[in-house]
């Protein structure tokens, strides 16, 4: 099927689901960052839980390919810290900013325009970053099970148990 068409259908469904889960709201995102409202954490961990099990099942059957990104400690840590500062200010991540606009929360439009500028600035800084931060602690395309040298299902079972434990705790605390 046409790549643009499948992208559109997938995005429509994903946007629909995110709106229904109320995860595209500034108040929910800041609520998570302020540790007051775990709605988006529940949503994200549930997504990861199902996708992790489903994709590794299909992977074991030889039906899908994994898409493992490089672990570069410098880039991941510095980038993550910068991302966190920006996220706390704008209150949306890139995809949720688009969805928030669809819902009528149009402060996200200014966030989206800023994101365009941020992408442009990153392109300007790329030659410098490539020679510095993007070389610090480069471990290549590793995964947790490969780095530990264990079967991936051991990691999956531990993570599923940890997520379910967290869910139980969130509900008990009314978060």
């Amino acid at each position: 099927m046409n790549e643009l068409l499948t992208g559109a259908v997938t995005g429509l469904l994903f946007g629909f689901i995110m709106q229904k889960a109320q995860v595209i709201r500034y108040d929910r995102q800041l609520g998570a960052l302020r540790l007051q409202d775990m709605t988006i954490v529940k949503f994200m961990l549930s997504t990861i839980l199902v996708a992790m099990v489903g994709i590794y099942l299909l992977f074991d059957l030889g039906m899908v390919k994994l898409s493992i990104k490089s672990t570069i400690l410098g880039a991941n840590i510095v980038g993550g810290l910068i991302f966190g500062i920006g996220w706390g200010l704008v209150g949306y991540c890139p995809a949720t900013a688009m969805a928030a606009l669809g819902e009528g929360r149009y402060d996200s439009l200014f966030g989206l325009l800023g994101m365009l500028l941020g992408a442009g600035l990153f392109a300007e800084a790329y030659p410098f970053l490539k020679a510095t931060v993007l070389t610090w602690g480069n471990f290549g395309k590793i995964s947790i099970p490969a780095a530990l040298g264990v079967n991936h299902w051991i990691v999956i079972v531990i993570l599923v148990a940890a997520f379910v434990g967290l869910f139980y705790w969130f509900e008990k605390k009314g978060l």
């Binding site: 990104k69 490089s70 570069i72 880039a75 991941n76 510095v78 980038g79 993550g80 810290l81 910068i82 991302f83 966190g84 500062i85 920006g86 996220w87 706390g88 200010l89 704008v90 209150g91 949306y92 991540c93 890139p94 900013a97 402060d107 996200s108 200014f110 966030g111 989206l112 325009l113 800023g114 994101m115 365009l116 500028l117 941020g118 992408a119 600035l121 990153f122 800084a125 970053l129 931060v133 993007l134």
Partner: peptide, 25 residues
Amino acid sequence: SRVRRWTLAFLGGVIVMFGARLADG
């Protein structure tokens, strides 16, 4: 104040995207 919110949303957008690209996520 809308101007204050929209300015900070814009600024946050710049920073969040720079960080996202750097961390490759």
